[in-house]
Protein backbone atom coordinates (compact mmCIF):
# COMPACT_ATOMS: atom_id res chain seq x y z
CA UNK A 1 0.00 0.00 0.00
CA UNK A 2 3.03 2.24 0.26
CA UNK A 3 3.77 2.24 -3.42
CA UNK A 4 1.94 4.69 -5.60
CA UNK A 5 -0.01 2.47 -7.91
CA UNK A 6 -0.42 4.86 -10.80
CA UNK A 7 3.01 6.39 -10.88
CA UNK A 8 4.11 5.07 -14.20
CA UNK A 9 1.72 6.74 -16.60
CA UNK A 10 -0.15 9.96 -16.06
CA UNK A 11 -3.58 9.32 -17.46
CA UNK A 12 -4.36 10.88 -20.80
CA UNK A 13 -8.04 11.31 -21.18
CA UNK A 14 -7.91 12.28 -24.83
CA UNK A 15 -11.03 10.38 -25.68
CA UNK A 16 -10.98 6.60 -25.71
CA UNK A 17 -7.69 4.81 -25.82
CA UNK A 18 -7.48 2.23 -28.55
CA UNK A 19 -9.19 -1.02 -27.65
CA UNK A 20 -10.78 0.32 -24.48
CA UNK A 21 -14.42 -0.41 -23.90
CA UNK A 22 -16.74 2.61 -24.01
CA UNK A 23 -16.73 4.75 -20.88
CA UNK A 24 -20.37 4.07 -20.11
CA UNK A 25 -19.61 0.36 -19.85
CA UNK A 26 -16.75 0.99 -17.41
CA UNK A 27 -18.92 3.16 -15.21
CA UNK A 28 -21.81 0.73 -15.44
CA UNK A 29 -19.57 -2.08 -14.25
CA UNK A 30 -18.23 0.03 -11.41
CA UNK A 31 -21.69 1.10 -10.37
CA UNK A 32 -22.70 -1.87 -8.23
CA UNK A 33 -19.45 -2.23 -6.20
CA UNK A 34 -19.19 1.51 -5.57
CA UNK A 35 -22.89 1.84 -4.76
CA UNK A 36 -22.58 -0.98 -2.21
CA UNK A 37 -19.60 0.74 -0.67
CA UNK A 38 -21.42 4.06 -0.41
CA UNK A 39 -24.63 2.57 0.97
CA UNK A 40 -23.08 0.25 3.53
CA UNK A 41 -19.85 2.04 4.44
CA UNK A 42 -19.81 5.72 3.57
CA UNK A 43 -23.33 6.52 4.74
CA UNK A 44 -22.87 4.84 8.16
CA UNK A 45 -19.43 6.39 8.55
CA UNK A 46 -20.82 9.85 7.88
CA UNK A 47 -23.71 9.14 10.22
CA UNK A 48 -21.28 8.01 12.94
CA UNK A 49 -19.26 11.17 12.56
CA UNK A 50 -22.33 13.40 12.67
CA UNK A 51 -24.15 11.64 15.50
CA UNK A 52 -21.12 11.76 17.79
CA UNK A 53 -22.10 15.41 18.26
CA UNK A 54 -25.78 14.77 18.95
CA UNK A 55 -28.06 13.35 21.57
CA UNK A 56 -29.45 10.41 19.72
CA UNK A 57 -31.97 8.04 21.27
CA UNK A 58 -33.76 5.36 19.32
CA UNK A 59 -37.19 6.39 18.07
CA UNK A 60 -36.57 10.10 18.55
CA UNK A 61 -34.97 12.62 16.21
CA UNK A 62 -31.44 13.44 17.17
CA UNK A 63 -30.67 16.82 18.71
CA UNK A 64 -27.41 18.73 18.20
CA UNK A 65 -25.29 18.52 21.32
CA UNK A 66 -21.98 19.99 20.32
CA UNK A 67 -19.23 18.59 22.47
CA UNK A 68 -21.57 17.46 25.25
CA UNK A 69 -20.96 13.77 24.69
CA UNK A 70 -17.21 14.17 24.84
CA UNK A 71 -17.39 16.30 27.98
CA UNK A 72 -19.59 13.70 29.64
CA UNK A 73 -17.17 10.95 28.64
CA UNK A 74 -14.30 12.67 30.40
CA UNK A 75 -16.34 12.72 33.62
CA UNK A 76 -17.73 9.23 33.21
CA UNK A 77 -16.06 6.94 35.78
CA UNK A 78 -17.05 3.83 33.85
CA UNK A 79 -15.46 5.14 30.67
CA UNK A 80 -12.30 6.13 32.52
CA UNK A 81 -12.21 2.70 34.14
CA UNK A 82 -12.59 1.11 30.71
CA UNK A 83 -9.65 3.16 29.41
CA UNK A 84 -7.55 2.02 32.33
CA UNK A 85 -8.47 -1.59 31.65
CA UNK A 86 -7.67 -1.11 27.99
CA UNK A 87 -4.21 0.17 28.90
CA UNK A 88 -3.47 -2.80 31.15
CA UNK A 89 -4.90 -5.25 28.66
CA UNK A 90 -3.18 -3.51 25.77
CA UNK A 91 0.28 -3.62 27.31
CA UNK A 92 -0.08 -7.25 28.32
CA UNK A 93 -1.56 -8.45 25.04
CA UNK A 94 0.93 -6.38 23.10
CA UNK A 95 3.98 -7.87 24.84
CA UNK A 96 2.71 -11.39 24.81
CA UNK A 97 1.35 -11.43 21.26
CA UNK A 98 4.55 -10.03 19.84
CA UNK A 99 7.09 -12.11 21.73
CA UNK A 100 5.55 -15.57 22.00
CA UNK A 101 4.88 -15.94 18.27
CA UNK A 102 8.36 -14.62 17.56
CA UNK A 103 9.93 -17.34 19.69
CA UNK A 104 7.76 -19.95 18.01
CA UNK A 105 8.69 -18.62 14.57
CA UNK A 106 12.36 -18.82 15.55
CA UNK A 107 11.87 -22.41 16.64
CA UNK A 108 10.23 -23.30 13.35
CA UNK A 109 12.89 -21.39 11.44
CA UNK A 110 15.61 -23.45 13.11
CA UNK A 111 14.01 -26.77 12.25
CA UNK A 112 16.32 -28.37 9.74
CA UNK A 113 13.77 -30.38 7.84
CA UNK A 114 11.52 -28.44 5.50
CA UNK A 115 8.79 -31.03 5.93
CA UNK A 116 8.65 -30.63 9.71
CA UNK A 117 8.76 -26.90 9.39
CA UNK A 118 5.77 -26.89 7.03
CA UNK A 119 3.93 -29.39 9.21
CA UNK A 120 4.37 -27.26 12.31
CA UNK A 121 3.19 -24.15 10.50
CA UNK A 122 0.09 -26.01 9.33
CA UNK A 123 -0.43 -27.26 12.87
CA UNK A 124 -0.31 -23.75 14.29
CA UNK A 125 -2.81 -22.49 11.72
CA UNK A 126 -5.17 -25.39 12.34
CA UNK A 127 -6.86 -23.91 15.45
CA UNK A 128 -8.12 -21.10 13.22
CA UNK A 129 -10.82 -23.41 11.86
CA UNK A 130 -12.60 -23.00 15.19
CA UNK A 131 -14.82 -19.91 15.09
CA UNK A 132 -13.53 -17.14 17.37
CA UNK A 133 -16.76 -17.12 19.35
CA UNK A 134 -16.37 -20.82 20.12
CA UNK A 135 -12.76 -20.30 21.21
CA UNK A 136 -13.97 -17.76 23.78
CA UNK A 137 -16.65 -20.20 24.92
CA UNK A 138 -13.98 -22.85 25.38
CA UNK A 139 -12.01 -20.45 27.56
CA UNK A 140 -15.13 -19.65 29.52
CA UNK A 141 -15.33 -23.35 30.20
CA UNK A 142 -11.62 -23.62 31.05
CA UNK A 143 -12.08 -20.97 33.76
CA UNK A 144 -15.33 -22.45 35.11
CA UNK A 145 -15.78 -24.59 38.26
CA UNK A 146 -15.85 -27.77 36.24
CA UNK A 147 -13.08 -26.58 33.98
CA UNK A 148 -9.62 -27.75 33.05
CA UNK A 149 -7.77 -25.16 35.12
CA UNK A 150 -9.64 -25.98 38.30
CA UNK A 151 -9.19 -29.71 37.78
CA UNK A 152 -5.49 -29.22 37.06
CA UNK A 153 -4.86 -27.20 40.22
CA UNK A 154 -6.92 -29.65 42.27
CA UNK A 155 -4.82 -32.46 40.91
CA UNK A 156 -1.70 -30.65 42.09
CA UNK A 157 -3.28 -30.09 45.49
CA UNK A 158 -3.25 -26.32 45.08
CA UNK A 159 -6.82 -25.87 46.21
CA UNK A 160 -6.34 -22.39 47.60
CA UNK A 161 -5.15 -21.18 44.19
CA UNK A 162 -8.59 -21.83 42.77
CA UNK A 163 -10.74 -18.79 42.17
CA UNK A 164 -13.84 -18.07 40.21
CA UNK A 165 -11.34 -16.47 37.87
CA UNK A 166 -13.91 -14.63 35.79
CA UNK A 167 -16.04 -13.47 38.70
CA UNK A 168 -13.34 -12.43 41.15
CA UNK A 169 -12.54 -8.71 40.82
CA UNK A 170 -8.83 -9.32 41.27
CA UNK A 171 -8.44 -11.94 38.57
CA UNK A 172 -11.17 -11.19 36.02
CA UNK A 173 -9.19 -8.81 33.81
CA UNK A 174 -6.15 -11.09 33.77
CA UNK A 175 -8.33 -14.08 32.99
CA UNK A 176 -9.60 -12.20 29.96
CA UNK A 177 -6.04 -11.24 29.03
CA UNK A 178 -4.82 -14.83 29.21
CA UNK A 179 -7.35 -16.15 26.72
CA UNK A 180 -5.37 -17.84 23.98
CA UNK A 181 -2.51 -19.03 26.19
CA UNK A 182 0.25 -19.90 25.11
CA UNK A 183 -0.39 -17.23 22.46
CA UNK A 184 1.24 -19.07 19.56
CA UNK A 185 -1.25 -17.40 17.29
CA UNK A 186 -0.99 -18.81 13.76
CA UNK A 187 -1.27 -15.49 11.97
CA UNK A 188 1.51 -13.81 13.94
CA UNK A 189 3.77 -16.84 13.65
CA UNK A 190 3.31 -16.97 9.89
CA UNK A 191 4.06 -13.27 9.51
CA UNK A 192 7.25 -13.56 11.57
CA UNK A 193 8.26 -16.71 9.78
CA UNK A 194 7.83 -15.02 6.40
CA UNK A 195 10.07 -12.21 7.65
CA UNK A 196 12.75 -14.64 8.81
CA UNK A 197 12.80 -16.56 5.53
CA UNK A 198 13.19 -13.27 3.67
CA UNK A 199 16.53 -12.57 5.35
CA UNK A 200 19.16 -13.21 2.69
CA UNK A 201 21.23 -16.34 3.34
CA UNK A 202 24.44 -14.40 2.67
CA UNK A 203 23.86 -12.24 5.76
CA UNK A 204 23.20 -15.26 7.95
CA UNK A 205 26.34 -16.97 6.66
CA UNK A 206 28.42 -13.86 7.24
CA UNK A 207 27.18 -13.78 10.82
CA UNK A 208 28.12 -17.41 11.27
CA UNK A 209 31.64 -16.71 10.00
CA UNK A 210 31.92 -13.77 12.38
CA UNK A 211 31.08 -16.17 15.19
CA UNK A 212 27.85 -14.60 16.34
CA UNK A 213 26.19 -16.87 18.91
CA UNK A 214 22.58 -18.01 18.79
CA UNK A 215 21.28 -15.28 21.09
CA UNK A 216 23.34 -12.62 19.39
CA UNK A 217 22.09 -13.77 16.01
CA UNK A 218 18.50 -13.44 17.12
CA UNK A 219 18.80 -10.12 18.89
CA UNK A 220 21.26 -8.30 16.64
CA UNK A 221 20.42 -9.82 13.29
CA UNK A 222 16.90 -11.23 13.13
CA UNK A 223 15.11 -8.56 15.10
CA UNK A 224 16.43 -5.58 13.11
CA UNK A 225 15.84 -7.36 9.83
CA UNK A 226 12.21 -8.23 10.54
CA UNK A 227 11.37 -4.77 11.85
CA UNK A 228 8.74 -4.28 9.18
CA UNK A 229 6.95 -7.45 10.36
CA UNK A 230 7.16 -6.26 13.94
CA UNK A 231 5.69 -2.94 12.90
CA UNK A 232 2.88 -4.64 11.01
CA UNK A 233 2.01 -6.88 13.94
CA UNK A 234 2.16 -3.96 16.35
CA UNK A 235 -0.43 -2.07 14.35
CA UNK A 236 -2.64 -5.11 13.79
CA UNK A 237 -2.48 -6.00 17.50
CA UNK A 238 -3.23 -2.43 18.50
CA UNK A 239 -6.28 -2.28 16.24
CA UNK A 240 -7.43 -5.68 17.47
CA UNK A 241 -7.11 -4.77 21.15
CA UNK A 242 -8.79 -1.40 20.79
CA UNK A 243 -11.76 -2.61 18.78
CA UNK A 244 -12.06 -6.13 20.01
CA UNK A 245 -14.56 -6.78 22.70
CA UNK A 246 -16.01 -10.07 21.51
CA UNK A 247 -13.95 -11.96 24.07
CA UNK A 248 -15.13 -9.78 26.94
CA UNK A 249 -18.70 -9.96 25.66
CA UNK A 250 -18.66 -13.76 25.58
CA UNK A 251 -16.72 -14.21 28.83
CA UNK A 252 -18.43 -11.68 31.10
CA UNK A 253 -21.25 -10.24 28.98
CA UNK A 254 -21.35 -6.84 30.74
CA UNK A 255 -17.75 -6.10 31.70
CA UNK A 256 -18.30 -7.43 35.20
CA UNK A 257 -17.66 -8.11 38.03
CA UNK A 258 -18.47 -4.45 38.60
CA UNK A 259 -16.62 -2.80 35.75
CA UNK A 260 -13.45 -4.82 36.20
CA UNK A 261 -13.36 -6.11 32.64
CA UNK A 262 -15.10 -3.20 30.91
CA UNK A 263 -13.33 -2.02 27.78
CA UNK A 264 -14.24 1.01 25.64
CA UNK A 265 -15.50 -1.12 22.74
CA UNK A 266 -17.89 -3.00 24.99
CA UNK A 267 -18.99 0.22 26.67
CA UNK A 268 -19.80 1.61 23.24
CA UNK A 269 -21.77 -1.50 22.39
CA UNK A 270 -23.71 -1.41 25.67
CA UNK A 271 -24.48 2.30 25.31
CA UNK A 272 -25.74 1.79 21.79
CA UNK A 273 -27.78 -1.37 22.19
CA UNK A 274 -28.64 -1.64 25.86
CA UNK A 275 -28.68 1.84 27.42
CA UNK A 276 -30.15 3.45 24.28
CA UNK A 277 -27.64 6.30 24.23
CA UNK A 278 -26.51 6.05 20.66
CA UNK A 279 -25.02 9.52 20.34
CA UNK A 280 -22.85 8.77 23.34
CA UNK A 281 -21.84 5.45 21.79
CA UNK A 282 -20.98 7.17 18.51
CA UNK A 283 -18.76 9.58 20.45
CA UNK A 284 -16.84 6.66 21.99
CA UNK A 285 -16.46 5.13 18.55
CA UNK A 286 -15.10 8.38 17.16
CA UNK A 287 -12.60 8.73 20.01
CA UNK A 288 -11.32 5.21 19.42
CA UNK A 289 -11.02 5.83 15.71
CA UNK A 290 -9.08 9.07 16.23
CA UNK A 291 -6.83 7.30 18.71
CA UNK A 292 -6.12 4.45 16.30
CA UNK A 293 -5.44 6.71 13.33
CA UNK A 294 -3.09 8.88 15.39
CA UNK A 295 -1.32 5.83 16.71
CA UNK A 296 -0.90 4.30 13.26
CA UNK A 297 0.39 7.51 11.69
CA UNK A 298 2.75 8.33 14.55
CA UNK A 299 4.03 4.80 14.76
CA UNK A 300 4.71 4.65 11.05
CA UNK A 301 6.61 7.93 11.32
CA UNK A 302 8.66 6.84 14.31
CA UNK A 303 9.57 3.37 13.18
CA UNK A 304 10.90 3.84 9.71
CA UNK A 305 11.66 0.54 8.12
CA UNK A 306 13.52 0.06 4.92
CA UNK A 307 13.41 -3.32 3.33
CA UNK A 308 16.80 -4.84 2.94
CA UNK A 309 18.03 -4.15 -0.55
CA UNK A 310 20.70 -6.56 -1.75
CA UNK A 311 21.66 -4.22 -4.58
CA UNK A 312 23.27 -1.58 -2.39
Amino acid sequence: MNSTPFRRARPRYSGRAAGQPPLWLIYALLFVPIALLIVFNYVPAASALFHAFTHWDPGRPSAWAGLDNFQQLLDDPVFLKSLKNLCKLGIFVFIVNLTAPFLVAEMIFHLRSERWSYASRVALVLPMIVPGVVVFMIWQYIYSDAGILTAFLEGLGLNNWIYGWLSHPKTALWAVACVGFPFAHGFNVLVYYAGLTNIPVSILEAAEVDGLGAAGKIMRLHVPLILSQIRLLTIVTMIGVTNGFESVYILTRDGGPGYETMVPGLYMFLNGFVFDRMGYAAAIGLLLLVFLLTFTVLFNRLVRTEDYDPGT
Binding site: P44, A281, L292
Partner: peptide, 17 residues
Protein backbone atom coordinates in the same frame (compact mmCIF):
# COMPACT_ATOMS: atom_id res chain seq x y z
CA UNK B 1 -12.51 2.27 3.75
CA UNK B 2 -9.79 -0.15 4.80
CA UNK B 3 -8.73 2.40 7.39
CA UNK B 4 -12.04 2.41 9.25
CA UNK B 5 -12.46 -0.59 11.53
CA UNK B 6 -15.89 -2.13 11.17
CA UNK B 7 -16.60 -2.45 14.88
CA UNK B 8 -16.69 1.33 15.27
CA UNK B 9 -19.45 1.71 12.69
CA UNK B 10 -21.59 -0.98 14.24
CA UNK B 11 -24.27 1.31 15.66
CA UNK B 12 -24.87 3.73 12.77
CA UNK B 13 -24.69 0.81 10.38
CA UNK B 14 -27.30 -1.00 12.42
CA UNK B 15 -29.65 2.01 12.54
CA UNK B 16 -29.22 2.49 8.82
CA UNK B 17 -30.08 -1.09 7.81
Amino acid sequence: MLMVPGALMLIPQFVWV
